[in-house]
Amino acid sequence: MLHISVIIPVYNAAEFLEKAVQSAAQFDEVKEVILIEDKSTDNSLEICQQLSSETPKVKLFQHPDQGNHGAGAARNLGIEKATSNFIAFLDADDYYLPNRFDAEKEIFKDSKIDGVFNAIGTEYLTEKGKEEFESKFKETSLSTVNYPAEGEEIFKGLLGLTTKTFGTSFHLNSLTIRKESLEPHHIRFNKDLRVHQDTEFIIKLAYHCHLKTGCIDKAVAIRGVHDNNRITKIIKYSPQYNQRQFLLWNSLNSWASDNQIPSESRKRIYLIYKSFDLSLKKGFVKYCNILGEVLKNPEILKTKYRFTYYNK
C-alpha cells in the first residue's frame, strides 16, 4: 500500500479548508494531512487547530517565525515535515475526488517511476470567479495533457519541443511523487517566486525525475474558482503578467545554465525568458534590443510570446 503525506499550504482559506482536509483524509493511503498555516488574516489558524485536534491524521505547522512566506515556502516546510514515502499536494480551496490515487496504485509498482500526475476538473464557486477564469483560460472543464507520456517526453512536452502539442503544464493537485526522488537534486519550490513557483517546480521535476501520466481523461481533483483566485486577477500580457513571467523564466534560465541541460531545451528556455525580458523594455531601447536579439537568435520570432505588450 502507498503511504502518502498530503501537503496543504493555508492562507485565508477558512471557507474551504474543512472540505479540502476531509477530501484528503478519507483515503487509507493518506497517512497524514500536513497543514502549513502561513499567517492568515482570517480565522484559518483556528480552523487548522480544530481540525488537527479532531482528526489524528491532521498535523499543523507554522514557520518558525510564524510569518507569511508564501505558498512555495509553505510547501517546502511541508516536504521537510512529511514522514511518508510519497508526497501529494492540495490547495486549501480545492478538494480530491474518490479516484484520486487509483492510477498511482498500479503505476508505482514500477520502481523506476518517480512521479505520477493526472487531470483535474474545475468548480465555479462564484459567478465573478467563473467569468474571470473563462476569460483567461481555454481549459475550463478539464485541465490535462493531450496524450499519455513518460520520462523525457514530459519535460520536452512542457517546453513545447515535441512533434505534437503536449500541454503547457499540469496542476500540483494531481501530482504524487516519491519523497526520496526529490533529494538527489534537492528539488524544492522557489520561495522567492510568490506566483508560478508551481510551474518552475514541475519543469525541474520533469527534468530530474521520471514522471508518468496517470488518469488524464477524467478528473481526480477539483479546483475551486472564486473571486479571490490570484491567477485570474492578472490580465494576460499586461505589464504585471509579463513581469511575473519574466521572474519565472529568468529563474529557469539560470537553472538550465547551471545544470547544463540539453542545448535544445536550454535554448527554448532562454528564448522564452528573453521574450519576456524584451516585453518589459520601453521605447526606442526596446526596439534596438529586439533587433539585436533577432539578429543573434532568429528563432525567437517563433516563440508564441513575440515580445508582447499591453495597451489600455
Score class of each variant (00 low, 15 high):
257 S>I: 12
257 S>L: 14
255 W>S: 06
278 L>T: 03
257 S>G: 08
268 R>M: 12
258 D>V: 09
247 L>T: 00
250 N>G: 00
265 S>P: 09
271 L>F: 05
270 Y>C: 04
272 I>T: 12
276 F>E: 01
263 S>R: 15
280 L>C: 03
270 Y>I: 08
271 L>S: 02
273 Y>N: 10
277 D>T: 05
267 K>H: 11
247 L>F: 00
258 D>C: 10
276 F>A: 05
259 N>K: 07
257 S>C: 09
254 S>M: 13
280 L>F: 02
269 I>C: 09
263 S>Q: 15
266 R>I: 05
255 W>D: 05
273 Y>Q: 12
258 D>P: 04
252 L>V: 10
265 S>R: 09
277 D>N: 12
280 L>E: 03
259 N>C: 03
256 A>C: 10
261 I>A: 06
254 S>Q: 14
260 Q>W: 13
263 S>G: 14
275 S>D: 12
249 W>Y: 14
269 I>M: 11
250 N>E: 01
255 W>H: 08
280 L>V: 03
254 S>C: 12
253 N>G: 09
249 W>M: 04
276 F>L: 07
268 R>F: 04
255 W>M: 07
277 D>Q: 14
274 K>M: 11
250 N>K: 01
267 K>Q: 12
250 N>S: 00
276 F>I: 04
265 S>C: 15
268 R>I: 07
268 R>N: 08
254 S>E: 13
247 L>H: 00
250 N>A: 00
256 A>N: 05
271 L>P: 02
274 K>A: 09
252 L>Q: 08
264 E>D: 13
248 L>V: 02
263 S>H: 15
273 Y>A: 07
281 K>T: 06
263 S>K: 15
250 N>M: 00
268 R>G: 04
277 D>L: 10
254 S>H: 13
272 I>G: 01
277 D>Y: 13
261 I>P: 03
253 N>W: 14
268 R>A: 11
275 S>R: 01
251 S>C: 08
280 L>R: 06
251 S>G: 08
279 S>W: 08
251 S>Y: 04
273 Y>F: 14
276 F>S: 02
249 W>D: 01
270 Y>E: 10
273 Y>T: 02
279 S>L: 07
281 K>R: 11
252 L>N: 04
247 L>M: 00
266 R>D: 06
248 L>P: 00
257 S>T: 13
264 E>H: 11
249 W>S: 01
258 D>R: 13
263 S>C: 15
268 R>D: 03
261 I>W: 07
271 L>A: 03
281 K>A: 04
260 Q>N: 15
274 K>P: 02
247 L>G: 00
252 L>Y: 09
267 K>V: 08
249 W>Q: 04
262 P>G: 05
278 L>W: 04
280 L>D: 02
256 A>E: 04
264 E>Y: 11
258 D>L: 13
247 L>D: 00
266 R>S: 14
272 I>E: 09
258 D>T: 11
256 A>G: 10
279 S>N: 06
257 S>H: 12
278 L>H: 07
260 Q>S: 15
249 W>V: 02
260 Q>D: 14
272 I>S: 08
